[in-house]
Amino acid sequence: MASLAAEIIAFLLAISGWVLVSSTLPTDYWKVSSIDGTVITTATFWANLWKTCVTDSTGVSNCKDFPSMLALDGYIQACRGLMIAAVSLGFFGSIFALVGMKCTKVGGSDQTKAKVACLAGMIFILSGLCSMTGCSLYANRITSEFFDPTFIAQKYELGAALFIGWAGASLCIIGGSIFCFSIAGNSKSPRMGYTYNGATSVMSSRTKVHNSAADFKSPKGPPKHFDKNAYV
């Protein structure tokens, strides 16, 4: 029961993390323009992996998609690839997890299901690492430009999508780790051994015959001394 509960908790954590990671791709605010040192803000600049936009004081937004994938900065291309890989791995990990869990009726024997569940945990961990790397790479570029005194262009701050991506990656890693540790704990559990001691009825009958013969041959009481007129 403990391993079954651990598998259910791991599945819920990993699926929740995968949903959060997937939600970061269409999220707008990966980076938002900084208002540090600005008295009056007339427009807000923000961008994600697919477009860059500006919102004026009236709330009207004008967006521009990135014109060419090959003309993008290297870190944006890397973040795109890592986040798409994280979403794809999480999808396959959820399928393997459903097959390998003990509460499902598919997957074959218990040993086969344990191997599939362990594979699902490793896939979720890899998905979380991809998402964590992608969000950290994007955040590193933002912070390096913000604290660079020679950078004179528009400076940005961390957007909400990065924190969502970090949270989802952490849940995927935790859920995948619980999957792997629960399967490892089940494989190391000791098995009870049984020994065959023969038929109970035969052994008991033999023991009774042996004990009765021994009692007849060697009496436990002290030897009796008969008088010379005992047989007269």
Rank of each mutant, 00 (worst) to 15 (best):
Q111K: 13
L171Q: 04
R141W: 04
L89D: 09
V106I: 14
L20G: 06
T195Q: 03
S131T: 04
G90N: 00
S94D: 02
F226K: 07
K102H: 10
S177C: 12
F151S: 02
F216R: 12
S177L: 15
L98Y: 05
K155V: 05
G165C: 05
I164Y: 06
T27Q: 10
C118I: 05
H225Q: 07
H225R: 03
T24A: 07
A214E: 11
L72N: 08
S144M: 02
S88W: 04
A86P: 03
G74K: 12
Y29C: 06
A114Q: 15
F96L: 14
M122I: 00
A114N: 12
Y156C: 01
S205T: 13
K217Q: 12
A85I: 09
S212N: 15
E157T: 14
Q154N: 10
V232Y: 15
L129C: 02
F151I: 06
F66A: 01
T44D: 03
I35L: 01
K220L: 14
R80S: 02
D110G: 12
V202W: 01
G74A: 10
K102G: 06
A6W: 11
P26V: 02
Q154R: 13
T27N: 09
Y194T: 00
V232L: 15
S3Y: 13
G81H: 11
D36G: 00
A199H: 03
Y75G: 01
L82H: 07
A199V: 02
I125A: 09
A2G: 00
N211Q: 14
Q77S: 15
A214L: 13
E157A: 01
M1V: 04
L137K: 09
I84T: 01
M192Q: 11
F147H: 05
F147G: 05
T27F: 03
S23D: 06
C53H: 08
K105T: 11
S22N: 02
K224R: 12
I178R: 07
E145P: 00
D110S: 14
M122A: 14
A214C: 09
Q154H: 11
L82P: 04
A5N: 10
K105V: 08
A2M: 10
T207H: 15
F66P: 01
M83S: 09
S131L: 07
G81C: 10
V232W: 14
F151Y: 15
S109I: 11
L89M: 14
N197W: 08
C135N: 08
N211M: 14
T112C: 08
F147T: 10
A71K: 12
S61G: 08
L98F: 13
D36S: 05
G221M: 13
F163P: 01
Q154S: 09
R80E: 04
L12Y: 04
M203Q: 12
S201E: 15
F124A: 09
N186M: 12
T42I: 06
G128F: 00
Y156R: 04
A120Q: 00
L89Q: 09
